[in-house]
Amino acid sequence: MKYTRITLSLITVGLLAACSSSPSTEGQSGATVEDRPSGAASSGVDSNRVVPVDANGAGGKSAYPELKDPKNILSKRSVLFDYDSYVIKDEYRSLVEAHAKFLTSHPSVKMLIQGNTDERGSREYNLALGQKRSDAVKKALTLLGVSESQLESVSLGEEKPSCSDASEACWSANRRGDMLYSGEF
């Protein structure tokens, strides 16, 4: 119920914005697009990241190209956490807000949030810690108006590390919550 209202109000904003002759529409609809000179900044890593997602996209599922557009903030899916911490840092607020906005305006889309931890300690306890991270992301999204029924938070614990050397840089990369949309999991 809550999200339909927000969706309505967002449409309203869109309507009103369309009515106005002045083009100064800050924030809201578009997303903060960084106008990068094409090619230069989008390195090979970016294109590598897109390919497997397309492969997993099960054909016609890629109904939302903005989710995969490397220039769109929605293509960013990871929230990193501090050591032994389960609060979302300020630097990830806008990312979480962008995804909340997408989910509220697409109520049929579902999201799976996977929490991760570094490799140190018990696997099962780490699974519970990963859950705390995915729950933190889920909590933030629901506070931003996303319906609970669109969200599932789960944990992968230390089982799916994004890198595997025993270094602080690697450990911090693994203290992570990942957001996956329908069709991506």
Partner: peptide, 27 residues
Amino acid sequence: INALRNETGSRLDKLEASARAQLELAN
């Protein structure tokens, strides 16, 4: 229309601010 737009904008800002405050509270 301009006035309305400004008002809606500022209310939306408030709405966002309140959501942000809730996030802060949750933390």
